[in-house]
Amino acid sequence: MCNWKPDRKTAPLVSNLLTLNSPGFSALYLLLISFVLLVSHPLIAQATPTPRAIVNKANLASFYPGNDGRSDARMTITDSQGRVQRRQFTLLRRNISNSGDQDMMIFFSRPADVRGTVFRVAKHLSTDDDRWIYLPGLDLVKRISAGDKRTSFVGSHFFYEDVSGRNPDLDNFSLVEQTEAHWLIEATPKQQEGVEFSRYQVWINKASHLPVKVDFYDHGDSLYRRLEVLKVETVDGFPTAMTSRMSDLNSNANTLLEFRFAAYNLGLPKDIFGERSLRTPPRQYLKRPER
């Protein structure tokens, strides 16, 4: 199908062409229509997506599915000596705009010392994120200053930025290769200062647009960090990375991140992303979806 539709400006031109009967104009008309069909045909448009366009789609597929979403999540953090710690939490997310600002809340339920702790993020693309944490023992809502996004998220091997999404504007992208199933994109940070990697390579599935593997190289250009997506499921129509693992290849430590009871387009109200939900979690939206 052709997705091209005449807009207000071109519509009179098109209708004029349609009403002209001279053979010359008919030929021109046919030529024009063929051209429009040709350039607007998605197969052709898809044949040469720019690396940035691929990354944009991957960003949308990874961090913006639906207008909003929820999921239970669990992290299994294994250190270099095989010792295991866990975190369990429920995530609520709401998009303010696609590829743009987002509201997020994370409600911790395990282990016992973090039960009832709530983390709230107002993610902004153009300014620093706003972050709050609620400490139930003190009934304290603490505002957290914007921090280095490439430090551990709740003690795991995932960075804050791995969970909330790295702004694609921060990197330059090039297409290294493509197979039938994947694009391999290389990203180099526009500013090397302030990040611990010199480049990363990301394998993006062509069908789901989800990154399935990311390899990070340090400033000495040795591979030191890897994200692998181990399981993807389609939830409410959106391919979702249900299991992924972030490995620190130097120490052989890793964190397994698993999602369960994910759901999208729940109609989460804007209001629930606020101080009220820090102190009194919105339990009607935290409950698990009936499947």
């Binding site: 789901s208 993807v232 499921e233 391919p239």
Partner: peptide
Amino acid sequence: YGHKKQIEV
């Protein structure tokens, strides 16, 4: 995507 239950396994 509703008709695809699992894309990558």
